[in-house]
């Protein structure tokens, strides 16, 4: 182990102990005395609801309604999407939910790889087909 020389930290560390007094610590008390946070100029019940055309999955813990804002990245798709549908039927304290999400992730990765592999494959086949056809036409003409 590497030890540091004998000098007290106050002598070698700038700002040492400046928050030693707990009243100088921004996270205390934890939880804080309830109050509206700076910048929040609205009432919770009056927050407008985000709307979207994208499919967003909502688990039972959100049965009361969607949160006023949410992300719309990467809507569920393909087989992995179907498994996600199933996963989000279960609340987050059930292991089932997480195991299904794990499965859907593996499927998602597989589907994306297949797409990458298949798309050039399809393009190549079409191109080769056209070439063969052209050659036929050329040689029979």
């Amino acid at each position: 182990m590497e030890r540091i020389g004998p000098a007290h930290p106050a002598e070698r560390i700038p700002g040492w102990g400046s928050d030693a007094d707990v009243t100088n610590r921004p996270g205390i008390p934890f939880p804080d005395v309830p109050h509206q946070r700076p910048g929040a100029h609205f009432d919770e019940r009056a927050i407008p609801q985000q709307v979207t055309t994208v499919e967003v999955l909502r688990p039972p813990e959100r049965a009361g309604g969607p949160t006023p804002v949410f992300g719309t990245a990467n809507p569920p798709r393909g087989m992995s999407g179907r498994v996600k549908h199933l996963a989000y039927r279960y609340p987050d304290h059930l292991t089932r939910r997480w195991m299904l999400l794990l499965l859907s992730h593996r499927l998602d990765v597989l589907e994306a790889r297949l797409e990458r592999a298949v798309m050039p494959g399809v393009a190549l086949t079409v191109a080769a087909g056209c070439l063969i056809l052209l050659r036929r036409m050329w040689t029979t003409a």
């Binding site: 804080d32 309830p34 946070r37 929040a40 967003v56 969607p66 949160t67």
Partner: peptide, 28 residues
């Protein structure tokens, strides 16, 4: 974080109830 929910009011920004549609574990 929304700044006004039960959790945000208590300074628990990381646990905001109004920004994570997919689970109740943490904020967005």
């Amino acid at each position: 974080s929304c700044g006004v929910c039960f959790f945000c009011q208590r300074g628990l920004y990381a646990n905001c109830a109004n920004t994570n549609i997919s689970s109740d574990l943490a904020s967005g």
